[in-house]
Design a protein around this nucleic acid. Sequence first.
DNA 1: TATTGTTATACTCTATAACTATA
DNA 2: TATAGTTATAGAGTATAACAATA
Lengths: 133, 133
Amino acid sequence: MVDETALPQQLWDFVYAYDAAYDRAARSAGLSAAQACLLKEVVDAPRSMSELAASLLCDASNVTQLVTRLEARGLVRREPGQDRRSKRVAITAGGIEMVDRVRGAFTFPQDRLARLPLESRRELSALLDAMRD
Amino acid sequence: MVDETALPQQLWDFVYAYDAAYDRAARSAGLSAAQACLLKEVVDAPRSMSELAASLLCDASNVTQLVTRLEARGLVRREPGQDRRSKRVAITAGGIEMVDRVRGAFTFPQDRLARLPLESRRELSALLDAMRD
DNA sequence: TATTGTTATACTCTATAACTATA
DNA sequence: TATAGTTATAGAGTATAACAATA
């Protein structure tokens, strides 16, 4: 376990800025970050509601609402699943276009990263290096 | 500008997991992530409402509500600012204790990072290295 | 009984617009 | 007029609990 004290405050700042950048990209496409995340999860293959809850780290009832909103906009489709209880969420052409838009709008928060003290960037690099082994 | 296509999907996964870890830590202390972030901003020195809006990257009206909730729980205090329009948000002893609790509960999502392909970790390291110069 | 998903509900986050008080 | 902050409002994200249908 990596000690928390070894993590520079600036690493959190970087994550925060990265997150905000993603949020901006999603919003520029007319989506919330949560909606964009869900679309990304189903862009390659359909997923069941429970699979989505697991990978999005949220409750199933939340997925229900997210999917309902996305379905109302024609970006995903509920399809019958394996047994008659489960459903698969499949992306539509419109949904794929949205994913592409978000990707295109995303810009790496280089300015924030560049503002990190040398020391912090070194620490982060070292942290990653240590994990290679 | 760093090209978006150079960023591995796994980098986003890492950021996502890091963010979720912070959220868990905050919740284990009975705070939302947004509340914990605000407390962190005022832990060293009082800040005005508008300063908080700027550093939290959100609207001032949002800060008003966050501070109102935190103040109701005795974690921050509104103090008179420079002129009679502005206010400073100061942390209380209870607020400091909360920040410490969140810090103590935060655990680095090492498992996720360890799951990154070597290739991705190398790319991230390289990205950081390149920015040193 | 256990699992999959939904519904009802409540709280928080967030922004926009309109507002008050002060500068 | 401009600035700091608040209030009113609305939409979205989120979880808990209770529920229906299926296994």
